[in-house]
Amino acid sequence: MGFKLLSKLLVYLTASIMAIASPLAFSVDSSGEYPTVSEIPVGEVRLYQIADGVWSHIATQSFDGAVYPSNGLIVRDGDELLLIDTAWGAKNTAALLAEIEKQIGLPVTRAVSTHFHDDRVGGVDVLRAAGVATYASPSTRRLAEVEGNEIPTHSLEGLSSSGDAVRFGPVELFYPGAAHSTDNLIVYVPSASVLYGGCAIYELSRTSAGNVADADLAEWPTSIERIQQHYPEAQFVIPGHGLPGGLDLLKHTTNVVKAHTNRSVVE
């Protein structure tokens, strides 16, 4: 069995187990497998329904001669939608809004960016022009300005110390501490036991640490421990890039980060 097929099978099995364990909360999309990078042309966006009122959005972007996937989250909030992270750029984010209108038909009224990198804030200006209120932590807003990236308009308070959590509509926002970046936030959907790890969490097929220019490698494993301790009931975990899975993604990420750190020390 090929690795790609095995990865998709694991996603399907995880979703099936969740649907059985929580039949009222989960209505997993039966329309197909989780979209992969090879299936999404740059400039297009796919939506994948995880649970009743919960979707991931998947886009792709060219970077350094390669094409990478990027995940975000959409959560229903009454007759409105909360968006977590842009679709990595203005063109993708405009396509995301169009796809949401086509498939869901509810307005996106608020959006949260989970850290300051372009795959999370690139497209904020498109959201703002569409009347979406954009939010991020003060740290993310400051770092985005320093980096020359787009800056969300509103500040999220109460997320300055490791372990801080605040309720934001249908989700809980959690600051686990520094990891992929010093400002990275985690998003949890309690009604569906869905954990969105953003770039602080890796997919299972990833074996290298990737972009760690703004990471705190020493603190990252401790931050992941905080996530595990705060959300032990999480059933569906979405990484910032690639295929979702279960809580095993947290341990896998820790292993990859520690291996990278150990290699760096040896070198």
Rank of each mutant, 00 (worst) to 15 (best):
Phe3Ile: 15
Phe3Thr: 10
Leu6Cys: 15
Leu9Met: 10
Leu9Lys: 15
Leu13Glu: 07
Ala15Thr: 11
Ser16Ile: 11
Ser16His: 15
Ala19Gly: 11
Ala19Val: 15
Ser22Glu: 14
Phe26Gly: 14
Phe26Gln: 15
Ser30Leu: 11
Ser31Ile: 08
Glu33Asn: 10
Pro35Ser: 08
Thr36Met: 10
Pro41Cys: 04
Val42Thr: 10
Arg46Cys: 06
Gln49Cys: 06
Ala51Glu: 09
Asp52Pro: 13
Ser56Gly: 15
Ala59Arg: 04
Ala59Ile: 07
Ala59His: 06
Gln61Cys: 04
Ser62Ala: 10
Asp64Pro: 07
Tyr68Val: 11
Tyr68Thr: 09
Gly72Lys: 03
Leu73Tyr: 01
Leu73Ile: 07
Glu80Ala: 09
Leu82Val: 09
Ala87Trp: 00
Ala87Asn: 04
Asn92Gly: 08
Asn92Ser: 08
Ala94Cys: 03
Leu96Glu: 00
Ala98Lys: 10
Lys102Cys: 06
Lys102Ser: 13
Gln103Glu: 15
Gly105Met: 08
Leu106Gln: 09
Val108Ile: 09
Thr109Ser: 13
Arg110Met: 08
Ala111Arg: 03
Ala111Asp: 02
Ser113Asn: 06
His117Tyr: 01
Val121Leu: 07
Val121Ile: 09
Leu127Val: 02
Leu127Glu: 00
Arg128Glu: 14
Ala129Phe: 08
Val132Lys: 04
Pro138Ile: 08
Ser139His: 13
Ser139Asp: 13
Arg141Thr: 05
Leu143Val: 04
Ala144Ile: 06
Ala144Met: 04
Val146His: 14
Ile151Glu: 04
Pro152Asp: 00
Pro152Cys: 01
Pro152Gly: 01
Pro152Phe: 03
Thr153Asn: 09
Glu157Ile: 10
Leu159Arg: 02
Ser161Tyr: 11
Ser162Cys: 07
Gly163Ser: 07
Val166Ser: 07
Val166Phe: 06
Phe174Ala: 01
Tyr175Trp: 05
Pro176Cys: 01
Ala178Glu: 08
Ala179Lys: 01
Ala179Pro: 03
Ser181Leu: 02
Thr182Gln: 12
Asp183Ile: 03
Asp183Met: 01
Leu185Ala: 02
Tyr188Met: 03
Pro190His: 06
Ser191Leu: 08
Ala192Asp: 07
Ser193Ala: 13
Leu195Tyr: 01
Tyr196Trp: 04
Tyr196Thr: 02
Tyr202Cys: 05
Tyr202Gly: 04
Arg206Met: 15
Thr207Asp: 15
Ala215Met: 06
Leu217Tyr: 09
Ala218Gln: 14
Glu219Asn: 08
Gln228Thr: 15
Tyr231Lys: 03
Phe236Thr: 10
Gly242Thr: 05
Pro244His: 04
Gly245Met: 03
Leu247Ile: 15
Asp248Lys: 09
Lys251Trp: 11
His252Leu: 03
Val256Pro: 00
Val257Trp: 03
Lys258His: 10
His260Leu: 08
His260Asp: 11
His260Thr: 12
Arg263Ala: 14
Ser264Gln: 12
Glu267Ser: 07
